[in-house]
Amino acid sequence: MTVIKIDKTEFASGLEKLKGSNKLFSPAKKGKDFEFAKLDAGEVPDLEGCRNTGMSPKSLIYPQSETMFEYTTEEADPDANLMKDVEKDYAPRVVVGLRPCDAYSFKLVQRNFESPEYRDPYWADSYEATAFISIACSQPYSTCFCTTAGCGPFHEEGSDIILAEDGDGYIAKAVTEKGEKLLADAGWATTAEGGEDKFASLKKAAEEKVTSSIDISKVRDMAILDLYEADFWEKEAFACINCGTCTFVCPTCWCFDIQDENKGKEGVRMRNWDSCMFPLFTVHGTGHNPRDQKYMRLRQRYMHKLKYYVDKYEDDVLCTGCGRCIRMCPVNIDIRRICDKMNSYVKA
């Protein structure tokens, strides 16, 4: 795959070219954090200022609230009482400046939304329409543990182009066909001499900066029920206030709730992010709630990420190690500590 060197001016002019036929999104300072926002003509993203965004880029593909259908019960309307698809904009989009872990997260989420048996049209169409130009991490957070969560600061899977900061410019590596095409469309063409080697050395240096880790080596072989019934859950869940922060900031939490909203004779069917931390997530029509204690809900989240998913797909964890849940949790529930409890658990 092509590896080239782009200087900052070229980078900016290339993005302008891309804006002609794509909608661009990149991190922009908003409130106390950076968040993804549309990049208008003439705007250059501040890729150096943003170590990572507060919210993950998940909502660019899978909005927190998304209208799927609309309907009317107005008899005079020929489409009365029909659920009609809402028109969607799946014009080409490019996300610039997301971190490799976030780009990788879409590959994990894809398992849920686009499997051999089932295809979620909203997520899949949106994902297909989007290209990702990620920027490798040279300065990971102390809470980042990507290298033990199946990816890393220079991880390529999920990105179409990956950029690495190099002096006054970037080394850009096209990872996919889509990426190659983007390089051409943007007019970024010069081949970097020794770019591949430089890229590898930057990668090695960055990976060494990720000092935090998780280990699920023993979790893999544990019986699900033993872990499920383990005695540490109540203690670990004590502080948890059962808010949805960890699930909403997580790039790989994908659950949603479907709601109908109507006014007069008009209505829509929409889906909104849901959270397994909320009691309502599992409450039955009868009022019975199989997860009526908060430790059960906390256990669900971590078992799903670190055990059920791993067992089901015989893969790595459903987590990219971005560390957002650790940084954002109001009461310091730390996935690394819970993972450690799970991995070191010995059935009495």
């Binding site: 909005p63 209208t67 909203e261």
Partner: peptide
């Protein structure tokens, strides 16, 4: 006043 949700 709640109208059709403005979300996208």
């Amino acid at each position: 006043v709640k109208d059709k949700p403005k979300v996208d």
